[in-house]
Every structure is written in C-alpha cells, then in structure tokens.
Design a protein around this nucleic acid. Sequence first.
DNA 1: ATTGTTGTACTGCTCACTTAATACAATAAC
DNA 2: GTTATTGTATTAAGTGAGCAGTACAACAAT
Lengths: 128, 128
Amino acid sequence: MSYEFDNHAPIYLQLIELFNQKIVNGSWTAGDRVASVRELALEFGVNPNTVQRALAEMEREGMMYTERTSGRFITQDQQLISDTRQQLAEEKIDQFINQMQGLGLGRDELKQLIDRKWGKNNGADRNQ
Amino acid sequence: MSYEFDNHAPIYLQLIELFNQKIVNGSWTAGDRVASVRELALEFGVNPNTVQRALAEMEREGMMYTERTSGRFITQDQQLISDTRQQLAEEKIDQFINQMQGLGLGRDELKQLIDRKWGKNNGADRNQ
DNA sequence: ATTGTTGTACTGCTCACTTAATACAATAAC
DNA sequence: GTTATTGTATTAAGTGAGCAGTACAACAAT
C-alpha cells in the first residue's frame, strides 16, 4: 500500500504518530494484538527495522507491551491512553496557535476558517 | 541567537516558513532590503548555503527579488503577499483539522481548547 | 584602480535515516 | 520433536541534509 510518508520527518516518527492516533481514536482497541513487525512493514511499505524502531519507542512510553513470541499488544491502561490523547492534542494546538499568530491571524478569523473547513477533509467524525 | 530548528524538517524549509511569516505579518516590509546571506546565516546560526537555498526558493516563488550586488529585497506585490498569507493559513488549517480528527476530537472540543490556549503563547518564539 | 560586499557555485566531509540481508532465541501450533 | 512465527540484533550500503571551506563575478564606494 505504501502510505504517504512525505513530509520530511523521519518515517519512524511518522509511524509513531500514526499508531498513537489509531490507539487514541479507537481504531486499535486496548488489549488487542497488533500485526507483526514484518506484516506492518509490508502494509506500510517500509523496512521492518523502521517499524521495529517505532514500536520499541512506543513500548518505552508504555503504549504497548510485548509477549516474547506471541506478538505485541496495545496497552490496557485506559488512563494512559486518554492522557496521551490529551497530550498529543495540546501539543498540536500549541504549535498550531503559534503558526496562526505567526501569520498574523486573529482568534475570530481563525475560528471562521475552521468552521468553513471542518468536515471537508474526510467526514469521518468520531467521538462527539 | 541560533533559533531552535528542531523538528526534523530540513532547516531550509523552516527558514522559508519563518521568512514567509515575517513578510506576511509585516515584520519584514514590502520593498525593504533583507540582510545578506552571510548576515542571516550568522543571525540564525546556520550555514550560508542553507540560507541561500531558502532565499533562492522564495525568489522562485516571487516573494523576493535580487539586485545583483545590492542585495535581496522583499516583493512589492501586495496581492502576492496577501494571497500567500491566505494560502499558508489554509494549508496549516487543513493539516491541523486532519490531525485533530485523527485524534478523535470534535469541533466543539477543539474550540474550547483553542480558547483555553490562545494568548498563553505570546511573546515566545515559534517553531518547534 | 583598489577594496569590500553582494549573490552564487563548487567540492568534500559528516551524520541521521533507511534499506537490505541475515541470523538467532523463544515459543505457540502441529 | 518439528515447524513456523514472533521479537530482536547485527552488519553493510545508500541517500539526503547540512556544514565547512573556498572561489568567482558583479558592482558600489572609496
């Protein structure tokens, strides 16, 4: 399939972001097994080493755990998941606000643009 | 000085973004001369080649023009400047909305967070 | 004419990221 | 017990970004 890894960030970081998204928005269910390193590498069109690096990093942060030869599993710690969701959202928002202020946009002008744009991207409106 | 260039994007792209911001929000005035490649390199703590690459790219897009040995100048095309501002804003917003939807945030939840965060980032510098 | 500053170009080097190709230990499945 | 799959480790190679250093042509200032 080979997703679009094209911003100039390292692929393993983009994988971490993508996988974290899948966990916090429920695409990947807590406690479930994730596909093997080799399968994920095939699915995303990258090297197994790159997947391994991303997953090992997420494991270090507690988002996953390994059972030696059965595979990897999503954490069952719902608190960690919702904390991660909140933290990721705040990071993105801070960064975004800085960018908007850097362009000289005001809060109201920004909200209007959001209203105009929201929903035009995929329509996949989850959670509220 | 040496700004923090540390997201994993190429520095020359971050420079382009920063310089475009300065033009669009009025920190750099249309028609004014910009500092020389070497001066900018010193100010931002990067290599002159990297600055050169960023400025050449912006020139290709019409945001600057060169007079051979006098230096580089900001475009005087106000229409181009405001168009660029609009285009940059829309890019960032699209990208931001995708991220928020990817995290499973709803529009209202998002607006609340913006209200809570707006204004807490002033004075600080952008980029990360 | 000389000097200094400008943009520009080129080469070589380093480093992080990625890929490739194996290899191995553990264990579930048979 | 054998086999297949799992995570993991290792080594080698390729690529692109960035840095360092140098050089040159154009022109303003003197």
